[in-house]
């Protein structure tokens, strides 16, 4: 019968292992998911607090903002600039927020 045949085949495969895995080393890599790591407005790294927050000692509240164009700035720096012009300071495209965060 067909079922018997497949069971026998499975049993056969179990006994004859091609190889055994003795050791398994995983290596993970990561990098910041940003195109530009310095805020082009205040010229401080985006992962550090902007100049404004540094001088007001509000380092923890300083977050990064990414636009649809994938350019990133400090949210504080960008919120001041959009009052002047709603364009990305780097590529001049219309500024649309993609996300904010650290």
């Amino acid at each position: 019968m067909e079922t018997d045949q497949t069971e026998r085949d499975a049993a056969h495969n179990k006994t004859e292992k091609m190889f055994t895995l003795k050791k398994w080393n995983l290596v993970a890599m990561w990098s910041w998911d940003v195109e530009c790591d310095t805020c082009a407005i205040c010229r401080v790294q985006v992962m550090d607090a902007c100049l404004q927050c540094q001088s007001e000692n509000k380092q923890d509240d300083c977050v990064v903002v990414w636009g649809e164009c994938n350019h990133s700035f400090h949210n504080c720096c960008m919120s001041l600039w959009v009052k002047q012009s709603n364009r990305c300071p780097l590529c001049q495209q219309e500024w649309v927020v993609q996300r904010t965060g650290k």
């Binding site: 205040c42 010229r43 902007c50 100049l51 404004q52 540094q54 001088s55």
Partner: peptide, 10 residues
Amino acid sequence: TTPARRRLMR
């Protein structure tokens, strides 16, 4: 120092 002054130093 204000942000503008610090930016100018940079």
